[in-house]
C-alpha cells in the first residue's frame, strides 16, 4: 500500500483562496469545498508538482516546512492521502 505513487486525479480542477494564513480549497469537479491545514496545503501543493509515495511526501513536506519527520507527521500525511483519495482529488499513478 505504501508503495503506491499518488498524483492529482485526471482532470482534477482545484482552486484556492487564502486569508490570514487560512486556506480554503475548492474542488471544481465535485463542487466540494474544504479547509486545509498548513501541512495539508504544503503536501497537496507538492503532490501537484510531482507524484509521490506516502514516504517521499512525508520527507518533502518536512523539509519544505523545516519540521522533523516524526510519527504524528506520518500519520497526518497518511490520513490526508486517504481522504484526498476518497474525495477523488488524487489517484494512484504509474511511477
Amino acid at each position: 500500500m505504501h508503495e503506491t505513487v499518488w498524483g492529482l486525479a485526471a482532470g482534477a480542477r482545484l482552486h484556492w483562496r487564502e486569508w490570514e494564513g487560512e486556506v480554503v480549497l475548492f474542488h471544481e469537479n465535485s463542487a466540494n469545498i474544504h479547509q486545509l491545514s498548513p501541512v495539508a496545503v504544503t503536501a497537496l501543493r507538492l503532490l501537484m508538482d510531482e507524484p509521490a509515495t506516502n514516504a517521499t511526501l512525508v520527507q518533502k513536506t518536512a523539509s519544505c516546512l523545516d519540521i522533523d519527520v516524526d510519527a504524528p507527521l506520518q500519520d497526518d500525511i497518511d490520513q490526508l492521502l486517504s481522504q484526498l483519495r476518497r474525495l477523488g482529488i488524487i489517484q494512484a499513478v504509474q511511477p
Binding site: 486569508w19 487560512e22 486556506v23 480554503v24 463542487a31
Partner: peptide, 18 residues
C-alpha cells in the same frame, strides 16, 4: 471573524453554490 470561516459559512447558506 475569520475570513476563511466566513466564506465556508456563506457557502453553507448558498442555495445554488453547487
Amino acid at each position: 471573524y475569520s475570513k476563511a470561516q466566513s466564506l465556508l459559512k456563506l457557502v453553507e447558506n448558498a442555495f445554488n453554490f453547487t
